[in-house]
Design a protein around this nucleic acid. Structure first.
Lengths: 347, 347
DNA sequence: ACGGCCGTTGATAACGTTTGCCGAAATTCA
DNA sequence: TGAATTTCGGCAAACGTTATCAACGGCCGT
């Protein structure tokens, strides 16, 4: 089951067998045939551990994520693993449970397992920085989805500003005028960028819109709570910073008896599976998951190709796509001008 | 950065350094201290590749699943990775996209990467069997969630019969009498067992209930379609074989204008995140995910401890828990005895 | 006081590959 | 035809560990 056995069986040396199997150097046609035949017959399987030891490359990539149970990530993980497997690499998975300390430990463990490269979705913009920077100095590393401070490593993410602009344009085009933003605070890039893009773009609808915001976190619970905070402003559209917030908002609105989209439109971000399955379906911004994965692996390959970490860092932003569903369908006929929609007391 | 360096720095031999760092054999207190100090000072990180080559164990477990985007699996993956990492193992992830052929390839790749063991959720009851059986002959292997024919390997899964019994008892206790089953066909264990358990248990509510079933697959789309197939029977409860079917059924019922739970109760299975977030929340059977993961790793450890594959195969079934939500709340007052609930035409 | 035993350490041979180097044969060119 | 060049294959040295074996103390028992 080792190279020696194949060599013996095919009547040549281990070196030759290695060469024909790895295709690293040309070898005689007849010899190659004999070797391949013998390898096949003996069911030879190369030993990755030995190969890794000798050639100092494991063919393995570490994937570190904050929370696999965050409904946006499974699709991303799927695309990443497929893209990497297609190149013959295997994926070591680490879920750090939103804890930067655990994240640092996992990164350390992956490095000592000699991964060729790392894909990291940092758990925290600030507190992940040191560990990520240290890791980036040792192996090629690509940040995904969230940032981690400037100049740390290559990164791939959706263009949050463009996505938010798509939402605001859509709402403007369908006659919404009193817009509120249900977002997330903190320095995480997705939160900050979407927040900023709303602030920048919503003024076009209504000069007061940039001020009508409520900030919490990226959760359903916050979505529910946030509705109550902005309901006094009698909005005709709630722009949510992600789909979970939108789901929560929708639930609270239904509790309040508000008609969606008749009285108020709701939009999300990410296009998690639940956005399509909620009733009504949630208008949202779809991240180009497959393309994000492809860009990330391509970035890794570029770094892996050139031994030293040559070339400037790249920050790739991919344009998202607006997915219009029922939650933002234009209201039938006149849209409420000034609180014409049914006022409902907060319970 | 290698054992040699640490040996030189601490003034002893590589053998001694290896021993103190691996703790494999007792070593003098003073020497141990010096070695540890030197290792710390030099920032020594053991080379897993070399270790794997020499000791023929990689400290790595392969996790093969059919579809990471299936909303039930992220939570399971999370618990499994945490349990394994806690034991110092790393997890190689493979998503085979519900394709038994790809599954076989991934298993092969993981084996040639010398994983110490495999955790497999088989993609197909029949077509996964050969690859899984072959793998089980080479390394310890635990099947999870779904079966793969008898006598293949150790397995861990929820007790589907017990779960279905919980649902039926609950519906009986809350006065439901005309029950229908929206299930999945095929030989997959979850589908078959839940089907069988419904058939066995529903007779207690109504002699005709075991006959009122509609079989499709485990999808939201099927849930929507299935409602129309059973609606003529004027059910007061729809028992769904998993939560996705329940979500679909709920959507269709709302389209039809049926009141849930007033006219008809809906129950699911698995307790995926969406079950809690749907409106109304779906009564469902929660799988003990953390315990499933713990049992699986324990099974692996048992096999890894004894070199040969000693001991009989174990098939562990864990009892699930009923989670009652709004979708099955008892109706206010009298429950319809004989189609007294509002009849709604199928659109 | 001497032989044997235990506890501790060092040399050294693997583990299965890849790869640099070298020789032999085959081929080309003058 | 002789020399230069290529092609092909083998030898052997790594890669960084762990495991085996022997050696060297010191300690105890008689």
């Amino acid at each position: 089951m080792t190279l020696r056995d194949v060599a013996r069986a095919s009547g040549c040396s281990v070196a030759t067998v290695s060469r024909v199997l790895a295709g690293t150097r040309p070898v005689g046609a007849e010899t190659a045939r004999r070797v391949r035949e013998a390898a096949e017959r003996l069911g030879y399987r190369p030993n990755h551990a030995a190969r890794a030891l000798r050639s100092r490359a494991t063919g393995t990539v570490g994937l570190v994520l904050p929370q696999i149970t965050n409904p946006f990530y499974p699709a991303l993980v799927r695309e990443l693993t497929h893209a990497l497997h297609a190149e013959g690499r295997a994926v070591l998975l680490a879920d750090c449970d939103d804890d930067p300390v655990a994240e640092a430990e996992y990164i350390d463990d992956l490095l000592s397992r000699r991964v060729d490269a790392l894909l990291v979705i940092p758990a925290d913009e600030r507190r992940s920085r040191d560990a990520v920077a240290a890791a980036a100095a040792r192996v090629p590393l690509v940040l995904m989805d969230r940032g981690c401070g400037p100049g740390i490593a290559d990164s791939v993410a959706v263009d949050n500003s463009a996505g938010m602009a798509l939402v605001l344009d859509h709402l403007a085009a369908t006659g919404r005028r009193r817009v509120c933003f249900l977002g997330a605070d903190g320095t995480a890039s997705a939160a900050a960028e979407r927040r900023a893009a709303y602030a920048a773009g919503s003024g076009a609808l209504d000069a007061a819109a940039p001020g009508r915001i409520a900030l919490g976190d990226f959760s359903v619970e916050w979505g529910r709570a946030a509705v109550d905070l902005v309901w006094d402003a009698r909005p005709d559209a709630l722009v949510c910073a992600n789909d979970l917030i939108a789901v929560g908002a929708l639930q609270r609105l239904q509790q309040l008896g508000a008609d969606v989209p008749g009285d108020v439109a709701v939009t999300g971000f990410d296009d998690i599976p639940m956005a399509a399955l909620s009733a009504p379906g949630i208008t949202t911004v779809r991240q180009p998951v497959a393309e994000l994965a492809a860009e990330a692996t391509q970035l890794l390959n570029r770094r892996l190709a050139s031994p030293g970490s040559e070339g400037p860092q790249r920050a790739i932003r991919l344009a998202p796509e607006l997915v219009v569903r029922e939650s933002s369908a234009p209201g039938a006929g006149e849209r409420g001008l000034e609180g014409a929609s049914t006022a409902v007391a907060v319970s």
